[in-house]
């Protein structure tokens, strides 16, 4: 008799644990509603936003920009954090469809596998806007537009600055390049844009190019090796992100050269660390990769719902910051 009771107890415990676990599992893609405040004379829209996660300062700034912009425009936001998981994201989009939102914004975790859920959105008549990252899907009627940084353009901007800076230089200008993670879109595109511009200037030469995996430690290690093999010959460093540039700056200082003077340093991203380095005179320029495109996105959504025609690819408005502006702008940087 006692044994049966015990078995029953065990069963009870097991089922309750299972229930608890399943409850935890579903909370991953939960959506939180934030009140959008009172609407003005415009129609109040309900916008669902599925973000990748919160893996970097850049991403956090991006999320905040979207949230603020939607709130300020008087719309209602339904926000969902996918925590880097595609299944959470698909779940979130399905729940947006079920709630009949007016528009869905999402930054896909991965490029593929969203066909079905995007078709469901299309059948429900809900327009989808891609933010920051693209999807790899044949049928481009599944989304309205892709708003994101143009990495190739960022590479071109970096090169243009260098061309301008070295127009009076005599002889060759030797460049070393720290690439991003091999095969990643920013690494491929930033390299392409840069090379495209310097191809017209035969005195600008890339003498070494190696991956630094977008990290500070690797950037430093690779730069150290570059300095040992090419040393004083290096005139310019082009790093595919600011973190690698910051690591390389340390290597250059330890080698006994002056970063920013002996070796010109170009970074991409415009993160706070780069501004600190520029304010200290150790870095020359950083090309912005702007996460604050919330307002631009809201404009696009409003324009589309008002019946305007929108291009399939819209580039984020981005600029470039040099050493002279750094000190002044440093306190205002949000990320």
């Amino acid at each position: 008799m006692k044994k049966v009771l015990r078995a029953k107890m065990l069963l009870l415990v097991v089922t309750s644990v299972l229930l608890l676990l399943s409850a935890c599992g579903s909370s991953g893609g939960q959506t939180a509603t934030s009140d959008g405040g009172s609407a003005g004379d415009k129609e109040k829209l309900v916008i669902g936003f599925s973000q990748v996660g919160a893996e970097s300062e850049w991403r956090t700034a991006n999320t905040k920009s979207m949230q603020d912009a939607i709130k300020e425009a008087g719309h209602e936001l339904k926000f969902s954090d996918a925590q880097q998981k595609q299944e959470n994201q698909i779940k979130a989009i399905r729940s947006f469809i079920a709630q009949k939102v007016d528009a869905i914004v999402f930054s896909p975790v991965v490029e593929t596998g969203f066909e079905t859920v995007l078709k469901e959105a299309k059948d429900a008549g809900i327009p989808v806007f891609l933010a920051d990252r693209a999807v790899d899907i044949e049928d481009d009627s599944l989304w309205v537009t892709f708003l994101g940084s143009d990495f190739v353009e960022e590479g071109r901007k970096a090169a243009n600055w260098l061309v301008e800076e070295t127009k009076d230089a005599e002889g060759d200008v030797n460049i070393v390049e720290l690439q991003g993670t091999v095969g990643s879109a920013p690494a491929i595109d930033r390299k392409e844009g840069f090379e495209e511009v310097i191809a017209d200037h035969p005195n600008l030469k890339i003498i070494k190019s190696q991956t630094g995996d977008f990290t500070r430690a690797k950037g430093k290690e690779v730069m150290e090796a570059f300095l040992k093999s090419d040393g004083e010959n290096i005139d310019v460093l082009y790093a595919h992100n600011d973190d690698m540039a910051i690591g390389a700056i340390q290597a250059i200082e330890e080698y006994g050269l002056k970063p920013g003077e002996d070796i010109k340093i170009i970074g991409v991203d415009a993160v706070k660390g780069a501004f600190e380095a520029m304010a200290a005179g150790k870095m020359n320029v950083t090309v912005e990769c702007n996460p604050l495109f919330g307002p631009q996105m809201v404009d696009l959504i409003e324009a589309h719902l008002a019946g305007e025609e929108i291009e399939k690819r819209v580039a984020v408005e981005e600029s470039m910051y040099t050493m002279d502006q750094a000190e002044e702008l440093l306190p205002t940087r949000e990320y």
Partner: peptide
């Protein structure tokens, strides 16, 4: 690999 300049793709 870094100092003799092997292409990053084949590191």
């Amino acid at each position: 690999i870094y100092s003799i300049g092997i292409a990053p793709e084949i590191n």
